[in-house]
Amino acid sequence: MQNFIDEVIRYLGYGENVPDKEVIDTITEIKNNADLLLKPKSVYGTFGIGYFDFLSSDLSAHLKGAESIILFAATLGAESERLASYYQKTDIQKAVIFDAVCNALIEQYCDCICQEIADKLLKDNKYINTRFSPGYGDFSIEYQSLILDNLNAGRRIGLSVNQSSLLLPQKSVTAVIGVFDSPPEGKARGCDSCNMKESCKMKGESGCSKTANSIL
C-alpha cells in the first residue's frame, strides 16, 4: 500500500516532497473506494512472429530475437469513467487524485498480469520482456484497434477505441510483449522513446507516468 501511495504521489507531481496528512488520507480514501468499485479486466494471447513486428521500427527493435509475441490489453472498466465523472462534478481535488490513482492502478494491474504470464511461461523456459504500447516511439497509436481486434477485446473486456484511436474506457492499456527463449537484455524503456518527452514534467525522474493514455 505504501508503495502504491508513493507512486500516486509521484504522479501528482510531488517529486521528492511529502504531501500533508490530509492529502495522503484522501489518496487512501479514494484508493479504497476504487478497490471496492473498479473491476479491472485483461485479455491476452500469443501470436506468431512476423505478423505484428513490422508495424514500427521501434517495435521491431523491441521484439528483436523474440520467438513469438503476446498481444495484451487491460482496462479498469466503465466504472472508472463514471467515478471520474462523479468526482469531477463534486470535488475537483478528489478528481485529480482519482485520476492519479487510476494511472497507478492500471500500471499495477498490468504488472501483476504480466508477472502471471511470465511465471506461466517460465515453466516452459520462456521469458518475456516489457510491454511496448502504441504511442511509444514510432509505434503509432493508430494500431490500438489492430491489437483490440485480434484479441476480440470489445467482447472480452469491453475495451474499444474512438475515431482518434483513444481507448475507451480511458484508463486502459494495450501492448505488445516479446517472448524469448532466453532472458532478454534488461533494458528498461527510457524517456527517449516516449511521445510525451517534449512536454513531460516528470522526465528523467523515477516512475514517470508510463501509461499510454495517461493524462496529467
Binding site: 501528482l12 517529486g15 504531501p19 490530509e22 475537483i92 481535488q93 485529480v96 487524485i97
Partner: peptide, 17 residues
C-alpha cells in the same frame, strides 16, 4: 514555485467554488 502541489491547488479551487 513548487512549494504547493496540484492536490493543494485543487483543494483551494474547490474551496473557492
Amino acid at each position: 514555485k513548487g512549494t504547493m502541489f496540484l492536490p493543494q491547488l485543487m483543494a483551494s479551487a474547490q474551496t473557492v467554488k
